[in-house]
Amino acid sequence: MSATMTHEGAVHTASHDHGHHDKTGTVIFGFWIFLMSDLIAFSLMIANYADAEWHGIANGPSPHELFSLGLPTIETMALLISTFTFGLCTLGMKYGASMKRTVFWLVVTLALGAIFLGIELYEFHEFWTEGNTPQVSGFLTAYYSLVGLHGLHVTSGIIWGILLMVQMKTFGMNDLMKSRLVRLGLFWHMLDIVWIALFTKVYLMGVLS
């Protein structure tokens, strides 16, 4: 493939690209199907949360009493910047960027993901030590499981990214690595899209309730 990339002949590269597109395209479409099934799982967790927040306060705090917007906003910005930096990473890769540049943006992305995760765990710890554990109410159970499920996804994305960097260093930047990086990128963008829903439903609407 890399040899073909240097060819100037439009017809040649076009036909080659077409054949290549089919194979990689199928793998990426398959990954889309996984992402969408994951999205359905998240949406049902949100539906469960919406009910628990509505009818399951019990003797615990309400969302309005529990949440403030400061830290979650910083957390949201970290993840939002990270989805953009992953975009810079994969877009550059596609247009022939050096491996150094690709790895640099991937490291920036994963570091921002780690900041996001750190803030989330800090908040969990704060709530927990105030006595607001999952056992207190249905609302808190739903909160920890919904936000925690998203946090687990970010954690697995970070581990996946680190493993991919090891593979890239070992095998070089071949088409398989590129395809894997694009799929991790889709996963990461999806996580930020899910976070829009969580941030809005849990924190923004929670403070408004």
């Binding site: 493939m1 060819h7 690209d17 990689t24 953009f84 975009g87 247009y95 022939g96 088409d175």
Partner: peptide, 27 residues
């Protein structure tokens, strides 16, 4: 156009056009 490879470089108009979409989305 393939998902993972372009025949063009990072100084191409196509790259800048694609980058603009990311920047708009981010902003």
């Amino acid at each position: 156009m393939s998902h993972i490879n372009s025949d063009l470089g990072m100084d191409s108009a196509e790259y800048k056009h694609a980058l603009a979409r990311y920047v708009w989305g981010f902003a």
